[in-house]
Design a protein around this nucleic acid. Structure first.
Length: 833
DNA sequence: GCAAGGTC
């Protein structure tokens, strides 16, 4: 009997390989897939005391992404407001992902068990659930389980193999929610501000003015610091400074009171001190204690990026590219990790041994061999990857690769070393009732500092002072000073702030910074030997413009994103449902969008400070009104030969499709702006506009917009009025095309399968369809039969449902809330989703 | 042409 087959799928090729090595004991057959970096590893292995055949492969991150259907692709195809409610389609990311998907799909046919080995985080759970979907499509009986591991080491992997559990669908749903919200909000605001502001301010050229829930707070941080510097008001202060010279060494004593901002107050104290000459200082305390400079924590991605900017003078974006190259060449471990603690079983010795051959740090590495290695333990563990460390000795590197590799090695060796140690002496003196302190440091053991030159710790000489001795200081002066402004933000600081505020992830922080540089929101400025980030005029205009609107929760501050993250966490914890979070957030951001539009003069005002406007106030409103009031129905396709049509509402969109071809998803009219539509009425009676063809069933459509504008048109009878209706949908000619029935049905078959599978589950509670039925059911039914349809049963079914589509939805709107099946509410199962 | 999140 053939043994059971298990398919294991990891999130990335490197993990698939490691797991294969561990579970097979390095005895596997490696087969290529169509993508050169995706391999399939095959071997036999015991699972629950039974021998099974194992195939381990991987995806390469996400395989699916969300997007709007193609009819929304053009930026002026609809109002940006529509994007808050528009349908969303799931698509494979690109051709590579398609091949990866095929690889899994093909294997899944012949296996009985799928084990998910994606990273054990939120994104991993989503990727895993997408993998499971692919496999279930190939093999509906496949048993799916989830391996959970906290490090890719034999103990963990073997335990995960023997005790796999279930996917956490809450986490997968949370990621799906994030994806949808980012898409809707990002695209809506980006289109709106780009299309509008570029028209008003020609200097902006053709660049994109993007909005993103991460990029805006990132810009906000840069602007905030910039303003703190620019608006800084210097303040004078005064202090008393005592200097002593002894054994050719100058000793500065700092006043315990620090500084005073009141000159009279400081002067009074000072006058009292120097009233009796000579000034006598008494040593009241001489303490020497051991101190240490702690060695660094194990290296995370964020720390690597910060160090790259600070010590290596390489941008975070570039340093990640270099780190990924080093990883792909097998020189360093996985560079995207949040973990700052090494596992108990981590094998330090072999890795240190590998570095002993280097002329720069080899001797230091040798000195660590055979020592008991202890490292500092940070508070982060992503349960997937160890801290970044060298995995083998590297040669043949480019100049920048060398720099980064050297940093990784030195950091690793520093972690394995001991803290630097020294003795710190504190001398405290008293003059009358005022106290002053001086400190000195003598380093006794450099330890990690010998291999880690990025940290500085130096001796400060302090000559001998004896307790209770008195002396007359060389100087005792009152010194005036003034406060100095903070410095502009450095990239390292920005990374730190983003990390602390939860903006982006370790793997994306550098992308957000690069994005706002590419968008010309911020720029780099060299000053001295440092590089700072400062906002451009465009960046300042955006932040000032949006901030002047005065939202309750600022678009340019991190709190908004943090709240969304909190909602996602609640989905993960099972305390909230995906749909509730989606609805709440979509409504919230839609409100913010509309507040922006209603306060346009404030947004424009922010820009007008920096850019010349080409438009007057009225023009500004017209430009933006034109952008969001795209009210006219949009023609997607019109299949004239497939009358009659039916009307349905999906999510927030009106669809008119042909009854004869229920799989005709896109052949019909698509009113993708229902947020501006108050009602749509279909009367299948003689059209009052044309009255041309009373013998044909004619469907008269009346669209009432929220602005009370009414458009009427008819179809099924008079092309003239249809043309009129359609030609208003855009500036171009939208003359309906004739499509013959045969080619039409072929296309239907092609498009049907790919667009099924998702049910609308969110009604909007409105009751917009006010259809009437006047003896049309029979005629529609007979038409369907005459046209062929799909036979008697099918035509009857469709006829009835079409009738409901037109006629029976009165009063049903509210029942189409979450959880209801669209088939029960007059909507076909051929959703365009 | 738009987001942010995976990864090569």
């Amino acid at each position: 009997m053939e043994s059971e087959k298990v398919l294991c799928v990891a999130e990335k090729p490197s993990v698939a390989k490691e797991i294969a090595k561990i579970l097979s004991g390095n005895r596997f057959v490696m087969r290529n897939s169509r993508i050169n970096y995706i391999k399939n590893y095959e071997f036999k292995c015991q699972l629950n005391s039974k021998e099974v055949q194992v195939i381990i492969t991987s995806v390469c991150g996400h395989i699916n992404a969300l997007d709007f259907p193609s009819q929304y692709a053009k930026w002026d195809s609809c109002s940006p407001t529509v994007l808050f409610d528009a349908p969303i389609v799931k698509k494979t990311i690109d051709e590579n992902a398609e091949s990866i998907r095929e690889n899994i799909f093909n294997i899944a046919h012949s296996v009985s068990h799928l084990m998910i080995w994606t990273d054990c985080d939120r994104e991993g759970e989503k990727i895993g659930s997408d993998i499971a979907d692919v496999c279930r499509m190939a093999n509906s009986d496949i048993v799916v389980s989830r391996a959970r591991f906290s490090a890719i080491i034999p103990l963990q992997i073997k335990r995960a193999w023997e005790s796999s559990a279930q996917l956490d669908m809450n986490q997968a749903e949370a990621v799906g929610t994030r994806m949808e919200l980012d898409l809707r909000i990002g695209c809506a605001f980006t289109r709106y501000q780009t299309l509008g502001l570029r028209q008003i301010f020609p200097e902006l050229g053709n660049g994109i003015l993007s909005y993103g829930s991460c990029q805006f707070p990132t810009l906000g941080f840069v602007v905030e610091r910039y303003k703190a510097v620019e608006n800084f008001i210097k303040e004078k202060f005064w202090k008393i400074h005592v200097v002593e010279e002894r054994d050719d060494t100058i000793v500065n004593f700092n006043w315990d009171k620090g500084v005073l901002y009141n000159v009279n107050c400081c002067n009074a104290i000072y006058c009292d001190l120097i009233m009796d000459q000579p000034v006598i200082a008494t040593v009241i305390e001489v303490v020497t204690k051991e101190t240490r400079k702690y060695k660094p924590f194990p290296l995370t991605t964020v720390e690597l990026q910060k160090a790259g900017c600070r010590f290596l003078h390489i941008s975070s974006d570039e340093i990640m590219k270099i780190a990924e190259d080093l990883y792909n060449k097998g020189f360093i471990s996985y560079p995207r990790t949040e973990t700052d603690q090494f596992d108990h079983h981590f094998n330090f010795n072999d890795l240190i041994q590998a570095q002993t051959q280097d002329p720069r740090w080899g001797d230091f590495a040798s000195s660590l061999l055979d020592k008991r290695i202890t490292t500092r333990k940070g508070r982060h563990n992503d349960q997937a990857h160890p801290p970044i460390h060298p995995v083998q000795y590297a040669t043949g590197l480019t100049s920048k690769e060398k720099t980064v590799y050297e940093f990784v090695v030195r950091r690793f060796l520093a972690c394995c070393s001991d803290d630097a140690k020294g003795n710190e002496t504190t001398v405290r003196i008293k003059i009358k009732e005022e106290y002053f302190t001086a400190k000195g440091l003598v380093i006794s053991e450099n330890n990690y500092l010998d291999v880690y030159p990025y940290d500085r710790w130096s001796d400060t000489n302090l000559p001998n002072f004896i307790l209770n001795e008195t002396f007359t200081p060389k100087e005792c002066t009152m010194v005036e000073g003034e406060t100095t402004p903070p410095e502009y933000l450095t990239e390292a600081e920005l990374i730190n702030i983003m990390d602390k505020n939860g903006i982006g992830t370790d793997a994306t922080i550098h992308e957000h910074i690069k994005k706002i540089i590419d968008r010309e929101y911020i720029e780099k400025r060299d000053q001295g030997n440092k590089t700072y980030l400062v906002p451009s005029n465009l960046g300042l205009a955006i932040v000032e413009g949006y901030d002047s609107i005065g939202f309750n929760e600022s678009l340019t501050k991190p709190l908004l994103r943090a709240k969304m993250e909190q909602n996602l966490k609640e989905i993960c914890e099972g305390t909230r449902e995906k749909n509730a979070v989606l609805t709440e957030n979509v409504n919230k951001y839609r409100d913010m969008f509309l507040i922006t539009h209603n306060n346009l003069q404030l947004l424009i005002g922010g820009f007008a400070k920096y850019f010349a406007s080409s438009s007057g106030t009225d023009d500004v409103h017209k430009v933006f009104n034109d952008i969001i009031n795209v009210e006219n129905p949009k023609l997607v396709r019109w299949c004239r030969d497939s009358w009659p049509m039916y009307l349905k509402k999906i999510q927030n969109n009106w669809i008119i499709s042909c009854i004869n071809y229920p799989n005709c998803n896109y052949d019909g009219f698509f009113f993708n702006n229902s947020s501006s539509i108050k009602s749509i009425t279909v009367n299948n009676e003689v059209c009052s506009i044309c009255s041309k063809n009373p013998l044909q069933p004619v469907y008269c459509l009346t669209i009432v917009y929220r602005t009370n504008r009414i458009i009427r048109g008819c179809f099924g009878g008079c092309d003239d009025n249809m043309d009129m209706l359609l030609s208003r949908s855009s500036g171009t000619s939208n003359k309906p095309r004739n499509i013959d029935a045969d080619s039409h049905s072929r296309r239907d078959r092609g498009s049907g399968s790919g667009t099924r599978g998702r049910r609308s589950s969110r009604g909007d509670g409105e009751n917009d369809i006010q259809g009437t039925s006047q003896g049309t059911r029979g005629s529609r039914g007979s038409r369907v039969s005459k046209r062929g349809g799909r036979g008697g049963r099918g035509s009857r079914g469709r006829g009835n449902r079409a009738g409901r589509g037109f006629t029976s939805t009165r009063g049903r709107g509210r029942s189409r809330g979450r959880g209801s099946n669209d088939n029960d509410s007059g909507v076909y199962d051929n959703e365009p989703l």
